[in-house]
């Protein structure tokens, strides 16, 4: 089976001069559809960097990233954007909802970039996540869990093949975290590839595969 996500020889150095650190050192990774993989490691070990590189949010110093058979290296900004719109979904620790828009509008915004027809799925997704009641509230008025659920809805609205989550439960209490974890598992179960960077034991427990990132190497 073609891996959804394929990392080969990924290398990234952060910082400059004497503070430079090689956070990723020839990392290889394959993620299959339907797989929920968790990446763990000490804080500052470059887990987030790995996720950002995987999603094309940053450029690696060396190595290649392939998503659904498409290499990111030679892509133009527009192609990358399209890729991110249709193939990728992001969930962040800090939720990163646009403060001026309501929760539903945030999801709708992402749907704009996606394939045609994604807009129709917005309402369904919002209902599916039991967020209808607060669909028109601004993020400042939502609890952390509600915000993250909207974020997950946003990540899923374009039916991406790959979902990348960076500490999705880091800012949530246990119950909200559990709900989000359920959503991610369901996403994986639906045939998507989900890569989660996490500290949370509950996540690693539900993961199909747990990888450790240490000294720039992934094991």
């Amino acid at each position: 089976m073609t891996p959804l996500l394929r990392l080969r020889g990924l290398t990234k150095t952060v910082g400059s001069g004497r503070a430079a650190r090689r956070v990723l050192d020839r990392v290889d990774l394959d993620l299959q559809p339907g797989e929920l993989a968790a990446v763990v490691g000490p804080s500052g070990s470059g887990k987030s960097t790995l996720l950002q590189l995987a999603g094309g949010l940053d450029r690696a110093d060396a190595g290649e990233v392939t998503i659904a058979g498409q290499r990111l290296d030679g892509c133009s900004d527009t192609a990358l954007a399209r890729l991110r719109a249709r193939r990728l979904g992001f969930v962040f620790q800090a939720f990163h909802l646009v403060p001026e828009l309501s929760g539903e509008e945030n999801v709708r915004l992402a749907a704009r970039f996606g394939p045609p027809g994604a807009s129709r799925r917005v309402a369904a997704l919002v209902d599916a996540m039991a967020l209808r009641a607060v669909a028109d509230a601004l993020p400042a008025q939502l609890s952390g869990g509600e915000q993250q659920r909207f974020a997950v809805a946003r990540a899923l609205v374009n039916d991406p093949a790959l979902v990348l989550a960076d500490e999705p439960t880091g800012n949530l209490d246990a119950s909200s975290g559990a709900i989000v974890l359920d959503l991610l598992s369901a996403a994986a179960a639906a045939g998507r590839g989900v890569l989660v960077v996490t500290h949370d034991a509950a996540v690693t427990a539900r993961a199909d595969r747990v990888l450790a990132l240490q000294d720039g190497r992934l094991r």
């Binding site: 999603g55 949010l57 900004d77 527009t78 954007a81 399209r82 990163h96």
Partner: peptide
């Protein structure tokens, strides 16, 4: 910056 980055992360093309 953050919002714009989020937009780009969500798949906004340069045109968007």
């Amino acid at each position: 910056r953050r919002s714009l980055a989020v937009l780009r992360a969500t798949g906004a093309t340069p045109r968007a």
